[in-house]
Simulated scan of single mutants.
Amino acid sequence: MSRKPASGAVVTGIDFDRWAVILCKPDAVDRGLVDVVLDRIEGAGVSVRARTDLVAEPWQAHVAYRDMLSNPGRFPADLPTRIDNAYAGQRVTVALAHGGPDIHARLRRLIGHTDPTKAVVGTIRGDLGNDSVAAATGGGRLVRNLVHTSDDPASARRDFGTWYGPGRTLKVSDFDRCSVILCKPDAVERGLVDAVLERIAATGATVANRQEITVQSWQAHVHYWDLLVDRDWFPDRDIPACLDETYAGRNVAVAMAYGEPGLHTQLRDLLGHFDPTLAAPGTIRGDLGDDSLTAALTEKRLVRNLVHTSDDADAARRDFGTWYGAGRRDLLIAELPTQNTPADAWPHLET
């Protein structure tokens, strides 16, 4: 099995400048308003097709709300629970909307404000909504606002892969100089976290803000959203189940690596090939890895390859919000040690 292409390459043949995904949420389904919502969208001169009714899986809701989940400083601490309560096992309807290059902006104006009480007359939420942000906040739940449409072409690509499945045809100044290091469960269980961080520090990067945490399911889903969206590249494995088995409820260690522009590429080269048997000597996976893609495929699981570092500045931003919480931006500008410190002296976050 060859390495998967960059995320997004699987979804071909669709011009997402002109296509958007419509998600009729569980409250629209429960209130019998799906036909009304889709008729309103078609009445605005937008072509609606490929309607599909389905039961939402937890990972789909996690990926759909990944920007909120990876920015917990702005949202309630129990946001993952609220999302699960609203979506997991609930019926939703999705459809595709086709129009001109302004399709995304047109649809967002048509559906109206997030809070139905603030949505103007003539919008879907303004005319059909029966909830409010105030009521939702008081009830410890998500606001029921009937419908979502893709924000822009990039969101449409992600929404399409999330709700329809890939293969169907029809960017950060602070983070240029820092990367999130994720020492995976196998590194923790084999006692290799210190060794991994020492290897990274030896490159000249400053390693700090180490933290041990127990992984929540949503964190694994947000972190590996591309595997979930492009999961048809892995027909031999149930990717959502593999992620939950590998990560949920298990311990990982995270740390920050600080350096100069180019840090992301430097660290990815240091890690080596994702299959430890193909990683070169001198790389972390090549020297410390004890698993193989062949074994993982045979056992229908994810390969155990010890460590992840952020691919680029955008990934570092997402990784930071996922594993530390976006509210900890002080870690991005904190004073750093003047030299790398040994593993037993790396500062740990207070918990």
Rank of each mutant, 00 (worst) to 15 (best):
F175N: 00
H223A: 15
D186F: 13
D275T: 06
R210H: 09
P185G: 03
P261R: 02
H273K: 06
Q219Y: 11
M256H: 08
D152V: 07
V188W: 07
L243Y: 07
I213A: 11
V207M: 07
Y258V: 08
I213C: 07
L271I: 09
E198G: 13
M256Y: 07
L192S: 03
L270Q: 04
T206E: 10
A154T: 11
V207N: 00
V196K: 02
A202N: 04
P166L: 02
T265W: 09
T214L: 09
V252T: 08
A208P: 14
A202R: 03
I213H: 08
C183G: 04
P276S: 01
V188L: 10
F175L: 07
Y247T: 01
T246N: 10
D159G: 13
D269K: 10
A280H: 06
I239C: 06
A279V: 07
V207C: 07
M256W: 05
K184P: 11
R231Y: 06
E245K: 10
G191M: 09
I239L: 07
D269H: 11
A279C: 10
A156C: 13
L182D: 00
A248V: 06
I200G: 02
R268N: 12
W225L: 13
P240Y: 01
E212G: 05
G165N: 00
W218I: 15
P281N: 01
D236N: 10
A255T: 00
E212N: 09
W218L: 15
